[in-house]
Design a protein around this nucleic acid. Structure first.
Lengths: 234, 234, 234, 234
DNA sequence: AATGAATGAGCCTTCATTCAT
DNA sequence: TATGAATGAAGGCTCATTCAT
């Protein structure tokens, strides 16, 4: 896999092929390959040469699309951030209790962490960026954190969540989720969806005024509201 | 602050001063300064020159104590790992339920994460080490993970922990804790102890067959067995 | 002299000039300059900076053509070795007595020793090479030695050379020739050709069953037996 | 052998032993070890640390006896040169034909080349010395060369050697001999004496007006049928 | 748009040498 | 005399970035 690479699947510069696709398509292809290489080897060990070669182009060609290595890094991050922004926007528009929103966020965020661009949100180091961009990243991180806190605070207010310190609770939950970006390996025994399901329960159950099981249990019928996570109790 | 540095507090090579302290003391001083610089700037951006200068010595002098930059990195990690090993050993020797051990581990591990050497366990990248050492690191990480899982499994067996998937539960808890190493800043509003207290409850409450409060509540009087965490409800 | 250098004569990177010559031409130009600098200053004292500067380029530019300093050293050697291989191949194809071949080899080898690449065969130290290449060098040296011995043995067999120990005789002759690489200075009073002529006679006359002069003078039978040298006929 | 080293045989700084031997003895011990290391690894690759360690002392201790690495190199050379000077002095005082002297020189020089200090005469690079010493070396080399030429010229004058160009003949002979310093390995199949014997004949036979055998044969009584033993006439 | 070639900047590492003890 | 510790000097190598084509 490392040798064949996935160049054939991803590169718009197919050798001996038409090279007329749109500029943005190529730009994105660079980002997809770059994020992969950066995650695989680490930003500093990864060279633009490696990125370029896997795309069947040469290093200077990258400079047609990006001004610098750190700009590529930033754009990778930005794509991941966009996903999170969208996902938060959707949840914000939904009508749910604080706990519901929190769970939705945990689930969606967990899934995002299992993607390359999602992982780039937590695996890349803002200090590698120009101050200008580093600040954007930090602001966005703060934004996500605040979202977690807000959902928790909402939950406390609407009674769906037990009183607690939203700040630390948010840290705990976000930490768990962010860590997924560090250990998740595509092709492992756990699917992103399974992980997301499990985390959505696990991380919020302690906060819920009524735990999932109890809630459903008390609510009489509904023997099981949640499907058993693959591998549970294994 | 960058200029004054904290050299005066940490360096055994006080300029124009006695230089007779023991070799091991100096070796450790190098590590303390190195881990600080590495955490502050990131391993790749940090230069040995910077480390040396802050110690009032020159770069080659470092080579009296270490063979290479990556060996320094490894030794930093090793010091952190030692802390964790010790801490696990103590807990292993204790007579507690699985849940008790888990909470003890969470608490101690959280505190460790708030130290430089502790943070180095999760902020440094094993890929920067020589394969030889990288393997040691990976093995140790596996060891910690297994410890978390073991305590959970014990807890399930002894009834102190609700049935769950020990693997994912361990990931969730360890993730939360590891993340502390990324966000904790000395001098912030939260003390390591406060964080540890909170996390020890927060991360295990969802797992406990009986939550802290409920347990104490049901246990008749004993309105509260745990001290209010500093800053709780803040 | 050090300042003017001979850059103008040898460098394809003429400053402010066309820079379009072929890559191989440049690669070779690097080798020509490198062998010169290495011989002039010795491999260890010579720096790549010096080589580059004389070529009107910068040090890293050399890495476009070679992977490391020792690879350059090896390639210099290889070019000299090629010359010798060619020269041996020609002699091997010729129809001559063993003595004839030996003389031809001595002559051609002597001339080679008076060239930069030829001298590099004996002035460079294989221990400066990577084991991989060092082994190639050693093997090639053995090959040359064996060629000398073979010609001598052939000569003994065909009667053109007096019985003697081919091994030591080869050492003696090759030593004389190799030493040329150490003392020959371009621009001295002796031309390579004159040296080669003289050595071809001098080094083989003692071996010839009939010396050059005697053979032509006496032009007669005059068989002679001499006692075999210790170790001869081994 | 490399591991045990020969420290125990050569070092006056035997650990846990009396350390009171004379300064000059130590100085010489350093030189004996240094020349060995320098020959074994090459002057530049060899470090003073290595030399010191093999002597069971530390690097700075060497500076009690020598001012610099290159001074050590020079002294090694000087010791070898002394041997050659002595040997030439003896031959100069002897009453022999030019050919006789030449043969004696060849024999003795060949044997010297098989010693460490002798090899240092031809394996070390004067350019590694300070100009001051380098000049001494060059002068001495010229001296040796002139001695060869002188003996040859004497031989031509006294009729023991065929007319020839003394300069080139000297180069040829000295080259052969010098090369011994490059290929001779202690413990090989050839003893220094055997090599010297063979070279004394081989290298001069071509020059002799009458070859060894012829001379003895024609000279009727054959006062000496046996080769002159090593050091004979010395 | 793409490339081959080149550069500038910088860092790790080595080692002879010095210094205080 | 010997040593541990430290330094200064230097060189090889890497790589992001630029330039001319």
């Amino acid at each position: 896999m490392t040798d064949e690479r996935t160049a054939n699947d991803q590169s718009p510069w197919m050798p001996f092929e038409n090279r007329r696709r749109a500029r943005d398509e190529k730009r994105e292809a660079v980002l997809r390959m770059a994020v992969q290489v950066f995650l695989e080897q680490g930003y500093h060990r990864a060279t633009l040469n490696e990125v370029a070669e896997r795309l069947n182009i040469t290093k200077p060609a990258l400079y047609n699309y990006f001004r610098s290595k750190d700009e590529i890094l930033f754009e990778c991050w930005a794509l991941g951030q966009e996903q999170v922004d969208d996902l938060i926007a959707v949840i914000n528009r939904s009508r749910q209790s604080g706990l519901g929103k929190l769970r939705a966020l945990v689930h969606a965020y967990a899934e995002t962490m299992a993607t390359d661009f999602g992982a780039s949100l937590v695996r890349f180091d803002p200090r590698d960026l120009k101050p200008h961009n580093a600040e954007k990243v930090r602001a966005a991180k703060r934004g996500i954190d605040l979202t977690f806190r807000r959902y928790i605070a909402e939950g406390i207010a609407d009674g769906s969540i037990k009183p607690c310190d939203p700040k630390l609770a948010a840290f705990a939950i976000a930490g768990s989720l962010n860590w997924i970006g560090h250990w998740y390996q595509r092709g492992g025994s756990l699917t992103p969806d399974a992980i997301a399901d499990e985390f959505a329960i696990r991380l919020t159950d302690g906060l819920a005024r009524r735990s999932v099981k109890k809630a459903s249990a008390e609510a009489a019928p509904a023997p099981r509201t949640r499907k058993p996570t693959k591998g549970e109790n294994r």
